[in-house]
Nucleic acid binder design. Structure first.
Length: 635
RNA sequence: GCCACCCUAGCUCAGUCGGUAGAGCAGCGCAUUCGUAAUGCGCCGGUCGUCGGUUCAAAUCCGACGGGUGGCUCCA
């Protein structure tokens, strides 16, 4: 279903509609789920689906003229969409703030009625008569009738049976399954969470419906566990932690939405991360490039961006009568460098990397902290290689990617292999070779992956790696994308052994994706308790009284000389308060220094985990800390 | 962008029925020198997002605008 939607999308890509070309190198775009993760039709599924029906009944009592749309179970609950009709002034009616409470109460009454869910099959005509005053249902039935869609409007292989489920006064077009009766829904195991606008069939050109989200579990305990988990996730939210640890800010009023200010703490972390990555790139056969933030319109015409990516680009800047555009991607510049001289087959592969800052238009409603922004820096690189080098190059880049991710502690992610869409550019045999190389590389790296058939970009197949944030939302970080398009458009070539011109393969890749999004995921992954090597401040030296300050400075000097980042808490606060300050800033190591330590020439180590390691010599501490830093360990 | 909700001091928040602004933290000052998550006292700090309207009177009611949060994708 998703697949089919995407194919429709990609068909439009090939007509070069800008709207539909958004998948193009979308390392900063939150990706549509490519997983075919059909929810198992287990007890929870039935429970949630049934709760949705019960909710619809309650809503129809509150708003008898409401039209019902669809109400499926989802991963942790359910929702139902309603069209509540119009207000007197013609505006769309929406739920009132206390409606949810009333609906929830009414649902409990319905549950208490233990009404059986009754299944029946009907003909299309019967169904239409039954739902005569429900236009959305009629649309669904017509889809079913045509045999190509199910009750949610998704394409189907075969014409399905049209069925309904009825409980109490509410009968819904539905395939089921459901619990036997409403009494099976635990009255204290569900909760209505929020209302939201949602377009009918997800299409913004169609009416906006009112959606109520709810969550439902087998019992009160599971519900509470879920709600607690939501609370915990909020504490890890990178926007909250980013503020608490003074890592970054954005100021939509004065600076602009989706534009990030990296504060010194965050900037230091980013510097450390980039420094490490750049060194690794240089050690792994990459060359670096720096390219400008703007380029002439001509460049973006040649690259095709003005043709199919214009919707994500900002308005042109006019300079002496010529139009320049802020770059949404780095590739045309790198291609230009590749073209700047004649390349021999001996020069390949060329691996050109740049921490390139790009700007893309994102609709205001989708901006999200660091994870979805309008200006961001990709750890971008373009690989130019000979066809015979391609499989090894893919292997190499995938392994390098895993190495980088693991260096930051990421070992779990969802991998996707997206293959040739119906329409595409580039020769079929090259596609096949590229897909084969990508898949073999995944297999050799022993990464579990899912194939998204036809999910590739029109210009080439790709591997995407996606991480989860605190709320288990997927964010794409790494991407490795073939490009059969740009070498053609820019007429790239190298001189082969035979003295003839040959077209190189080109691969886009970003490993962390963008520094901004990577930090969003990094912050949530660690909840702010970063590995010591990345920690802006690694050691808090806490003298117990002013008498111990000089000793504290000595300790600081020695640790700093060894390369650790150390601060002495030499204010007049009590030691407890200093510990608390360091604790709140999630400083990994606290060295408490009182008269006892000073006399013995020791340090007393407390970890941010709360663990107290007691007295040790400064040398022992230093050796331990340096080892943790070098190994990129957590603490 | 669209729907809902929200916007009060640097931060987190309170503010009843419309009667003219509060707390904690942070900051600053003074005192305190303390053994593993908050020492005490004092001071400073607000055009209640902006603009307009209703009213004798607006943080509070209404409207527009700006900004934020969640949702609009999790469907099988």
């Amino acid at each position: 279903m998703l697949r089919a939607e995407r194919q429709v999308g990609w068909n439009r890509v090939l007509t070069l509609s800008p709207q539909q070309a958004k998948g193009f190198f979308e390392s900063n775009r939150r990706h549509i789920m490519a997983k075919s993760n059909e929810l198992p039709k287990d007890d929870l599924y039935k429970l949630r689906h049934s709760a949705a029906h019960v909710m619809a009944e309650a809503v129809l009592e509150l708003y008898p003229e409401a039209k019902v749309a669809i109400g499926p179970p989802i991963q942790e609950g359910f929702y139902y969409d309603f069209d509540l009709g119009r207000n007197a002034d013609g505006t769309a009616r929406t739920f009132a703030p206390d409606d949810l409470e009333w609906i929830e109460g009414r649902m409990r009454q319905i549950i208490g009625g233990r009404f059986p869910f009754q299944y029946r099959e009907v003909s299309a005509d019967e169904a239409k008569a039954l739902f005569a005053d429900q236009p959305y249902k009629i649309e669904l039935i017509e889809g079913l009738e045509r045999g190509s869609f199910d009750e949610y409007g998704n394409p189907l292989e075969e014409a399905p049976v049209i069925s309904t489920y009825k409980h109490d006064t509410f009968e819904d077009l539905c395939r089921g399954p459901h619990v036997e009766n409403t009494g099976k829904i635990p009255p204290d195991g569900f909760k209505l969470l929020s209302v939201a606008g949602a377009y009918w069939r997800g299409d913004e050109n169609r009416p906006m419906l009112q959606r109520i989200y709810g969550t439902a579990w087998k019992n009160k305990k599971d519900l509470k566990a879920y709600l607690d988990r939501l609370e915990e996730a909020k504490k890890r939210d990178h926007r909250k932690v980013g503020k608490e640890l003074d890592l970054y800010s954005s100021d939509s009023d004065d600076v602009g939405g989706g534009l990030i200010l990296w504060h010194p703490n965050g900037a230091l972390m980013r510097h450390l991360a980039e420094e490490f990555c750049k060194d690794e790139h240089l050690a792994h056969g990459y060359v670096l490039a720096y390219t400008p933030h703007i380029g002439r319109a001509k460049l973006w015409e040649t690259s095709g961006h003005l043709g199919f990516y214009a919707d994500n680009m900002y308005s042109p800047i006019e300079i002496e009568g010529q139009e320049f555009y802020l770059k949404p991607m780095n590739c045309p510049f790198h291609v230009n460098i590749f073209k700047s001289r004649l390349r021999s087959y001996r020069d390949l592969p060329v691996r050109m990397a740049e921490w390139g800052t790009v700007y893309r238009f994102e609709r205001s409603g989708v901006l999200h902290g660091l994870a979805r922004v309008r200006g961001f820096t990709q750890d971008d690189a373009h690989l130019f290689c000979r066809p015979d080098q391609m499989p090894a190059e893919i292997d190499r880049v995938l392994n390098f990617c895993l190495h980088i991710l693991r260096s930051f502690g990421f070992t779990e992610f969802n991998a996707y292999l997206s293959t040739k869409p119906e329409k595409s550019v580039g020769p079929a045999d090259q596609w096949q070779a590229a897909e084969h190389a990508l898949e073999e590389a995944l297999k050799r790296a022993e990464i579990p992956y899912e194939i998204d058939p036809g999910g590739g970009a029109f210009y080439g197949p790709k591997i995407d790696l996606k991480m989860l944030d605190a709320l288990d939302r997927e964010w794409q970080l790494s991407t490795i994308q073939f490009d059969f398009n740009l070498p053609e458009r820019f007429d790239l070539h190298y001189i082969g052994e035979d003295g003839q011109q040959h077209r190189p393969y080109m691969i886009h890749r970003a490993l962390l994706g963008s520094m901004e999004r990577f930090f969003a995921v990094l912050i949530e992954h660690y909840g702010g308790n970063f590995p010591v090597w990345l920690q802006p401040q690694q050691v808090a030296v806490i003298p117990i009284t002013d008498r111990n300050n000089d000793y504290a400075y000595q300790v600081q000097g020695k640790l700093e000389a060894a390369g650790l980042r150390v601060e002495v808490y030499d204010n007049s606060d009590r030691m407890q308060a200093k510990v608390r300050d360091a604790q709140l800033m999630k400083i990994p190591y606290m060295l408490v220094l009182g008269d006892r330590e000073e006399e013995a020439g020791m340090v007393n180590l407390r970890l941010r985990t709360g663990e107290r390691r007691g007295n040790m010599t400064l040398d022992d501490f230093l050796a331990m800390a340096l080892d943790v830093v070098a190994s990129k360990a957590l603490i």
